[in-house]
C-alpha cells in the first residue's frame, strides 16, 4: 500500500545534489529539540489522564470487593485477577498466540476483501448499483448466528476463524475506502486529465492517496472487532485460543471467574496493541502528513 506513494528520499537527495544552505524561510528538517519536548509533553498529557481514570476505577473495585467481602466466584478483585492470571501464564501464553494468529490473518483477509469490494464498487457503475446495497444489507445479518454454519463449511481449524474475523471486519474498510475514493479533489482530477492521465494513473496518483485517510479510519474501526470476532468463533468450536481458555474457566468446578476476567483484560490489551500498530502503519503510509 505504502509502496505506491512512497517518496524515495535517497533518490531525491541524489537528484537535488548538495543540500542548499539553511534559510530562515526554509522549513526546518525534522523537529527541533524544543518541538520534540513539546511533542513528548503532549504525549504525556494524552496518556496520563486515562491511565489515572483506569487506576481509580480498579482501586474502587478492589475497595468494594474487600470491604463487602464479595465472593470471588461472583466478582474477584483486580488484585486476585492479576495474580491468578499471572500464575496461569503457562496456559494463557499459547492461547494468546493462537487467537492473535486468527485475528491478524482475519484482518489481512478483511483488508483484501474490503479493498477489492471498494475498488470494484468504485470502478464499475453497474457494480456500484448492485453490490453496494448487498454489502450494506450483509451487515444486518447477525454474523454471530452464522458462526456455526461457517464451522460446518470449513471445519474446526484456522480457516473458519479467519473467515469470521473478515466477515466482521471488512465492512468499515470497504465503506471508508469507497468514500475516500469519491472524495478526491475534482480540481486535481481535471488537472491530471489535462496532462492526459489515464484512469489507472488517476487512481494511483490522486484518488488512492486521497482515500488513504478514510481507509485508515475504517481500518481502525475494523481492528477493534478482530479479537472479539476470533473469540466468538472459538466459542462455537475450537481446540485452542483465548475463547477456549475462557470456556474452560467457566466450565471448571468451581467456576474460575478470576481467569475469565483475566482473559477479558488480556483481550482488551491485545486489541489496544493492534490498534496502536495500525496507527503506526498509518503514519508510515502517509509521511506527508504533519506530525501529530
Amino acid at each position: 500500500m505504502s509502496a505506491l506513494v512512497r517518496t524515495d528520499d535517497a533518490a531525491l537527495a541524489e537528484a537535488v545534489g548538495t543540500v542548499p544552505p539553511a534559510s530562515p524561510l526554509a522549513p526546518t528538517p525534522g523537529p527541533s529539540p524544543a518541538g520534540r519536548q513539546r511533542g513528548f509533553g503532549r504525549r504525556v498529557r494524552t496518556v496520563v489522564p486515562p491511565l489515572l481514570v483506569i487506576a481509580a476505577v480498579l482501586a474502587l473495585w478492589q475497595l468494594f470487593v474487600t470491604v463487602r467481602h464479595v465472593d470471588p466466584q461472583l466478582l474477584p478483585g483486580p488484585n486476585l485477577i492479576a495474580h491468578s492470571t499471572w500464575d496461569d501464564r503457562v496456559n494463557i501464553w499459547p492461547a494468546i498466540g493462537v487467537t492473535t494468529e486468527e485475528a491478524v490473518l482475519g484482518m489481512a483477509l478483511a483488508v483484501i476483501v474490503g479493498v477489492v469490494f471498494a475498488v470494484s464498487i468504485d470502478s464499475f457503475r453497474p457494480v456500484r448499483g448492485s453490490l453496494y446495497p448487498i454489502i450494506v444489507a450483509s451487515q444486518t445479518v447477525p454474523i454471530i448466528a452464522l458462526a456455526p454454519l461457517v464451522l460446518v463449511w470449513w471445519g474446526f481449524g484456522l480457516v473458519p476463524k479467519i473467515v469470521l474475523v473478515a466477515l466482521f471486519s471488512f465492512f468499515p474498510i470497504s465503506v471508508g475506502l469507497v468514500q475516500g475514493l469519491a472524495s478526491a479533489d475534482p480540481d486535481a482530477m481535471n488537472l491530471l486529465r489535462t496532462m492526459r492521465a489515464n484512469r489507472f494513473q488517476l487512481l494511483r496518483r490522486v484518488r488512492f492517496p486521497s482515500a488513504l485517510p478514510h481507509f485508515f479510519t475504517g481500518l481502525k474501526i475494523s481492528v477493534t472487532y478482530a479479537y472479539s470476532a476470533a473469540i466468538v468463533a472459538e466459542f462455537v468450536g475450537a481446540q485452542q485460543g483465548l475463547g477456549v481458555y475462557m470456556t474452560t474457566a467457566i466450565r471448571a468446578a468451581p467456576i474460575r471467574t478470576d481467569l475469565v476476567l483475566g482473559a477479558v483484560f488480556v483481550i482488551a490489551i491485545l486489541t489496544l496493541a493492534l490498534f496502536a500498530i495500525v496507527g503506526l502503519i498509518e503514519r508510515l503510509a502517509m509521511p506527508w502528513r504533519p506530525k501529530p
Partner: peptide
C-alpha cells in the same frame, strides 16, 4: 487534452508529493 498546460483556480497541489 494535453495540447495546452492548465493551471486551475486552486493550486491543486497533491499533498502527498
Amino acid at each position: 487534452l494535453g495540447a495546452s498546460a492548465y493551471m486551475p483556480q486552486h493550486d491543486a497541489l497533491l499533498d502527498w508529493r
